[in-house]
């Protein structure tokens, strides 16, 4: 389970840009609940809303099924960022073009808890991990919904 250290962000920015800057990373760690961190990276959806949303046709799927950005066409309008339901595509702070994970797998080598792996759809299904992960997340979220007494109650 992700512990939120963000090494994958830093290593991603270093891999692509030779500098340390999480805003240039192609992945992001999001804290979605007090006790839950999730690494967001493009999952190359079958129905890719980002591709449909792009007015410049700068996004496309390559032969391996990976969604790519043609930065010559991209104008940085951010329509793909709005369209992505996972928050997995970003605007580069300097080039102002879309950037996203292209499944290079470089970050997986540095994850200290081995949470990051590159799997094909088949592998994922075979391992039945999806179900397990979903169940884990559901349980965890249920557990976390505690009614916390606010400090005002003490006044």
């Amino acid at each position: 389970m992700c512990v939120g250290c963000r090494i994958c962000e830093a290593i991603c920015s270093f891999h692509w840009e030779k500098t340390l800057n999480p805003k240039k990373a192609r992945n992001r760690v999001r804290r979605v609940d007090p006790g839950l961190d999730i690494v967001v990276a493009c999952r190359n959806c079958n129905q890719a809303w980002c591709i449909e949303a792009c007015p410049e046709e700068a996004l496309y799927k390559n032969r391996q099924g990976i969604i790519m950005v043609n930065s010559k066409k991209c104008r940085g309008c951010g329509a793909c960022v709005e369209a992505c339901p996972f928050g997995a595509i970003f605007i580069h702070p300097e080039t102002q073009k879309a950037i996203k994970c292209v499944t290079c797998g470089f970050c997986t080598k540095y994850c200290p808890v081995n949470t990051l792996r590159i799997l094909t759809e088949e592998e994922l299904a075979t391992l039945k991990q999806q179900k397990v992960i979903q169940a884990e997340c559901r349980n965890l979220l249920d557990e976390l919904r505690v009614e916390e007494e606010s400090l005002e109650g003490e006044q």
């Binding site: 389970m1 512990v3 939120g4 250290c5 963000r6 090494i7 830093a10 007090p34 006790g35 839950l36 961190d37 200290p112 808890v113 965890l140 557990e143 976390l144 505690v146 009614e147 916390e148 007494e149």
Partner: peptide, 25 residues
């Protein structure tokens, strides 16, 4: 609940805890 790491930490000594019920929930 889980351990949590600070930025770029491999030891992850931070943690999250849950008290479900009672006056100290």
């Amino acid at each position: 609940v889980k351990p949590r790491a600070d930025y770029a930490c491999l030891q992850r000594c931070g943690r999250y805890t849950l008290v479900k019920t009672g006056p100290y929930a």
